[in-house]
């Protein structure tokens, strides 16, 4: 029988695990409001919002934020287009080399970021492309495409084939069927895939280190802050911001794809 209450040992272990996972994050959140600027005492002597004003007044912080947003938006856009096209090509037809092609598509997310980064850097060098915003975007797009591809192909597989046939039967050509039937059914999968891709790109650091050149995205800025102890409260504020920007889309994507079953194939 299933009992409502777990044994206290298990509950203690579960809470312990959660605390272990999230304690460092809680510390960062807490010290973003700390009144001291260098030596930290626990518990904090007082709480203040002044670091938010300080952080938002610094041009290097603002530049890094705006670059990261720019890169994430571009990478997401590329991923949405390429990921959708790739999944549309691969979900139904079988052709020679299909399996290896889908493996190659998914590979960037399985490869260690450091490999992707080195590979991209040497590729850009041999092509004579200067590292900059463009190379960061391309680097991020390699794994963002996979996220969109996985989301879209899962939705396509769940979409009843007879909906597409019904559309063709009623006189719609391929483009009209895509526009009126397939795309609306993909809507939430695209949104979810896009949000996840955005979140991944926004806090990516390993691939970015190799492809950024002199540009500084927010995660790189944060990494550089480690050598400046006097700025720690500002760093905490920025870290909190990164957390919010990446966490909210992931939560959103989770809720969007969760209800996806009701969308497709409700004819049965």
């Amino acid at each position: 029988m299933h009992s409502d209450k777990a044994p206290w040992g298990l509950r203690l272990a579960a809470w312990g695990g959660l605390l272990f996972l999230h304690f460092p994050i809680l510390i960062i959140l807490l010290y973003a409001f700390n009144t001291e600027d260098a030596a930290f005492s626990f518990p904090p002597r007082g709480l203040t919002l002044k670091w938010f004003t300080v952080a938002l007044a610094r041009p290097d912080v603002l530049d890094a934020i705006s670059l990261s947003l720019q890169v994430a938006c571009l990478a997401t856009l590329i991923a949405l287009v390429l990921g959708t096209l790739a999944s549309a090509a691969l979900y139904r037809r079988s052709f020679l080399g299909k399996e290896s092609l889908s493996l190659v598509l998914i590979l960037p997310i399985a490869l260690p970021g450091i490999i992707t980064g080195i590979a991209l850097l040497s590729a850009f060098r041999s092509l004579g492309i200067e590292p900059g915003v463009f190379t960061i975007v391309v680097g991020h797009a390699t794994f963002c495409v996979v996220i969109v591809y996985n989301n879209v192909i899962a939705r396509l597989r769940r979409t009843s084939q007879s909906l597409i046939e019904a559309s063709m039967d009623l006189g719609a050509d391929g483009w009209q069927t895509f526009r009126y039937i397939i795309l609306p059914n993909l809507g939430s999968a695209l949104l979810a895939g896009g949000m996840l891709a955005f979140a991944l790109s926004f806090d990516e650091i390993i691939v970015t280190t190799f492809t950024a050149g002199h540009e500084r995205t927010l995660p790189i800025w944060l990494l550089n802050q480690l050598s400046r102890p006097r700025d720690v409260p500002v760093t905490n504020v920025v870290a909190m911001l990164v957390m919010l920007v990446t966490m909210l889309p992931i939560l959103g994507a989770y809720y969007l794809t969760r209800g996806g079953d009701a969308v497709a194939g409700s004819g049965k």
């Binding site: 009843s160 007879s162 046939e165 019904a166 039937i181 609306p184």
Partner: peptide, 25 residues
């Protein structure tokens, strides 16, 4: 035109838009 076994109604459209789909395209 075909009446499908699982009806294949478009789940994201209301009944009127479903019926008018063939005329729309």
């Amino acid at each position: 035109n075909t009446v499908f076994q699982d009806y294949a109604l478009f789940p994201h459209m209301n009944v009127l838009d479903n019926v008018a789909y063939g005329l729309k395209v």
